[in-house]
């Protein structure tokens, strides 16, 4: 197949960017979208032009490194897949394909299609964990968890932190990402102990990072490659309300040395 790619090119974080046209020819339907970009890049290198920078790593839909807003949709037109799992058979010969980076204030562009998603890490750093040190854990089966809760926690925990929810949300809200972690830990007995501080801290950090607010359009759930449910956002809202109303005053957490 032959295609016309319109790709966002931007030299660095503070440089202006623009959409640039790249025709590509002889693309196989069995190629993944990123392999198609590999072909383009090899051609650009040989021609002496700068290849297009894009994030990718595992290429099997689990690391969350790849991104790309393809034809106006996060991870392209297919449901429940990341860009690396998107295959060219999803496109038609002769099609024009727009390829852009995730757009959000909290995800500044590093170069071309690469963005900085460090905001997600910083949200995790303030509460996305159970405060348990290595060693001294009790026997795993001393902590029974109902299968229903365990399954729900697992479903929330499958979030790969790719940022498609933010990219696709008209408000660039990170609620789906944050709520997935809050939910996973709120559903499990291990996580209940710190549930209140966790939700308050993570939501506060989310706001500090400059993400927008959730207006429940539900776009994130549709575009999420892992199918993380909106139910998690509701659960986080519940957790947040109850923590805000009944939680203790914030104390500095200390421990270790």
């Amino acid at each position: 197949m032959n295609l016309l790619l319109k790709i966002w090119r931007q030299k660095g974080p503070n440089s202006p960017g623009k959409m640039v046209d790249y025709p590509v020819t002889d693309i196989s339907e069995d190629m993944s979208f990123l392999e198609m970009l590999d072909v383009l890049n090899d051609q650009l290198v040989v021609k002496g032009e700068e290849p297009v920078s894009f994030d990718h790593d595992c290429r099997e839909g689990i690391c969350g490194m790849c991104s790309l807003y393809i034809n106006g949709q996060a991870h392209g037109p297919e449901r429940l897949v990341t860009t690396c799992q998107l295959h060219m058979r999803s496109f038609k010969d002769g099609e024009t394909i727009y390829i852009e980076p995730w757009r959000a204030k909290a995800f500044p562009v590093v170069k071309d299609l690469v963005v900085d998603r460090g905001a997600f890490d910083r949200i995790m750093n303030v509460g996305g964990f159970v405060s348990v040190n290595t060693g001294g854990a009790q026997d795993a089966n001393c902590l029974p968890v109902s299968k229903v809760d365990a399954d729900k926690a697992f479903d929330a925990a499958t979030c790969i932190g790719c940022g498609a929810c933010v990219a696709t949300c008209k408000n660039s809200s990170a609620m789906l990402f944050v709520s997935a972690k809050v939910s996973q830990l709120a559903l499990l007995p291990q996580g209940k102990i710190e549930a209140q501080e966790r939700v308050l801290n993570m939501v506060e950090q989310m706001d500090v990072e400059g993400f927008g607010n959730c207006t429940n359009t539900g776009a994130c759930e549709v575009e999420c490659p892992k199918g993380i449910s909106l139910e998690n956002i509701a659960r986080m809202n519940r957790e947040y309300l109850s923590a805000a109303l009944t939680g203790e005053e914030k104390k500095e957490i200390t421990g270790g040395f």
Binding site: V130, A137, A140, L143, P144, K147, A150, Q184
Partner: peptide, 21 residues
Amino acid sequence: NIIDQCVAQGVPFARDYGGLL
């Protein structure tokens, strides 16, 4: 110990209907 540690961290391992691993 690894399994104990991971469960304590909140890793959602598969469980059966009695709630055990």
